[in-house]
Amino acid sequence: MLAYLVRRLLYALPILIGVNLVTFALFFVVNSPDDMARMQLGVKRVTPEAIARWKAERGYDKPLFINEAANGTAVFTDTIFFSKSARMFAGDFGRAEDGRDIAREIVSRMGPSLAIALPTFLLGLLVTISLALLLTFFRASYLDFWGVVLCVAMMSISGLFYIIGGQYLVSKVWRLVPISGYGGGLDAWKFLILPVVIGVVSGIGSSTRWYRTIFLEEIARDYVRTARAKGLSELTVLFRHVLRNALIPILTGVVVVIPLLFMGSLLTESFFGVPGLGSYTIDAINAQDFAVVRAMVFIGSVLYIVGLILTDISYTFVDPRIRFH
């Protein structure tokens, strides 16, 4: 197992380097730093001096890959690629446009992001799997049919409408909770409950339908017939046999997402004014803060790869037949 993990981690390295190169190419090769400077400073009436100063402030005035003017290792280290891209591996993301350290900002914003994403994730999983089991239990009945119809209808509503509608009804018309904002401590639940509920509701459609298909596939298997033949009740069959065997396909889709919870949800956080990583990213996109977007892309892919490895590990817990060498 340990050897397997080490090997997986080593496999992850080239992928991360690839991600790094892709983002580097996107941010520095497609556009020269001059273009970025012109964009930031306003396209018209921008002097070469202003561009040069902008580049020097951010360290974009170096050569891309090889600095021929430098000596020794500085030939490679005193370049944009090394100072901006390669140092991300060490957790050094540089500074944002407002001069703050990105790494520190990310750490402080992780809390609010998790406070919303984690309950949404867990509650959503519970609700959708229960609903899917319910539909499976009543399969081929009117409840099942209309349940699926409802799921498809819910899938077809854009996530934006869930948020806008929910905010309007709950916060403005019924005045139950504040529309947006975030508070620490015990009062935080007031701010958290609406985004969590909306997050769960907006995910019901597609997830329930997806889990239902998985369960229906399992229920057609021979072992289910055997279980019924030996006299087990339908509920026992569903919970003890079908649910446990359906865990593998469910885990495949679910575990990958867990590390990405740190990233928060872009939409929810920006609508509800939560100072998390999602709203950080949106603000950076709107302010065209390239350094922050670059950092988030890198962190996102690291977390995704962690998620893939976690998925593999989780398989061994639910299926004792799976062994990694």
């Binding site: 992928i15 991600v19 996107l26 012109r38 396209v43 977007v293 670059r294 892309v297 892919s301 995704y304």
Partner: peptide, 27 residues
């Protein structure tokens, strides 16, 4: 694997930002 390991929205955001720069600097 490399491309799919970058979260979709972020990759799109990065690419669109860069495209925006290209469009704005070449009126």
């Amino acid at each position: 694997t490399t491309l799919s390991s970058i979260p979709g929205v972020l990759l799109i955001a990065a690419a669109v930002l860069m495209m925006q720069v290209v469009i704005d600097t070449h009126p």
